[in-house]
Write a protein that binds this DNA or RNA. Structure first.
Lengths: 184, 184
DNA sequence: TTGACAATAGACCGATCGGTCTGTATTGTC
DNA sequence: GACAATACAGACCGATCGGTCTATTGTCAA
């Protein structure tokens, strides 16, 4: 079997993604991941060294994919419109079949240890969002770009956390508010 | 010993509150709770029957306390001002020493099973919030009270989730937005 | 053909999980 | 003084946790 085509490492990351995101990092044991990935225990520890590192790697790939997805979604949108259009992306995400909240928020709330490698990834991605929001609000020419960018972060968090609990309506509500905010 | 004064049940709930809220429901085992409460295993199962029920009871007491705290905080505020003043309460909560996000959001994200008794409690409390928001926005005399109430829920979720990750600044940001929303 | 390499299966480890059960000490009530 | 009720301590259960280790298989290059 050509192992570089199947890619044990990728299979493990795929399985980790499905299970960790869907059920939570603490709720899913190593053995579940191995069964889902159809991989051997030694392979996991060969490639990642520990469960904590697997979690960090899963989150790193997920955030990388998310950035790419967002950038692709906004590519055709003029900079001045991107802040609002981003919330279209959020709505689509919240409405997607397997949506179960924000992996960054989950990481922070599940992994108490501030030094956990996955939390480092999470905070990096949060910064990326903060930078994008500031960039977009500046481009939108609103009065107080910094305060508006921070408000967008609140709306984003509220959209995702709210959608996890109450359903995607919350994401639409956030978009409604973002529109108001960016217009005023 | 007068057991009704010491109150094993209350001691267990106190310990569960501290540990479950601070570190997460799945991260804390029964034995940790027993040690923290200085109680015997049999007492826990006598009073609660299972860990799941202990979690539900902890959350029920916590939500009850939260409602009382909010109502007391708003007692002196005229109904038309309550929506905004509520966010003062949120800011104070986010700035409190042991703040670690919203137990309702944590419950939903940690306990996947939709039938879990704690999730029933969580959804009940969410409804209470939704009703209060609608009540307050109606009293504030805003144009679209229903949409505004839903927007306040987003701001609340964003304030709390954001504060857990980034610190209490997010709660202030949410208040800033709530003020804008309620003024327009 | 051989040897290095990457993957497999799965036994095994100590620790911890939620939960049950036995036994004992203390309490207030009759 | 006897009784039931309540709480205690802690042994014990099977299952699972994250992690290590041995042994085996299949693939590719020299």
């Amino acid at each position: 079997m050509n192992t570089s085509e199947s890619g044990v490492r990728d299979r493990l990351l795929d399985a980790a993604d499905r299970l960790f995101y869907q059920e939570g990092v603490r709720a899913v044991g190593i053995d579940r991941v191995l069964a889902e990935a159809d991989a051997a225990k030694a392979s996991l520890y060969q490639h990642f060294g520990s469960k904590d590192q697997l979690v960090a790697s899963y989150l790193e790939r997920k955030t990388k994919d998310a950035r790419a997805s967002i950038e692709a979604y906004l590519a055709g949108t003029p900079p001045s419109q991107r802040a609002l259009t981003f919330f279209d992306w959020v709505v689509a995400w919240a409405e997607s079949k397997d949506f179960r909240g924000c992996p960054l928020q989950h990481t922070v709330s599940e992994l108490t240890d501030a030094a956990h490698p996955a939390r480092v990834i999470a905070h990096g991605q949060r910064e990326w969002f903060a930078e994008r929001f500031l960039e977009w609000t500046k481009a939108a020419g609103v009065k107080d770009a910094k305060a508006t960018a921070r408000a967008l972060m609140v709306l984003f968090d509220g959209a995702v956390a709210g959608s996890e609990v109450d359903g995607p309506q919350r994401a639409s509500d956030a978009r409604w508010m973002a529109k108001k905010l960016l217009a005023g």
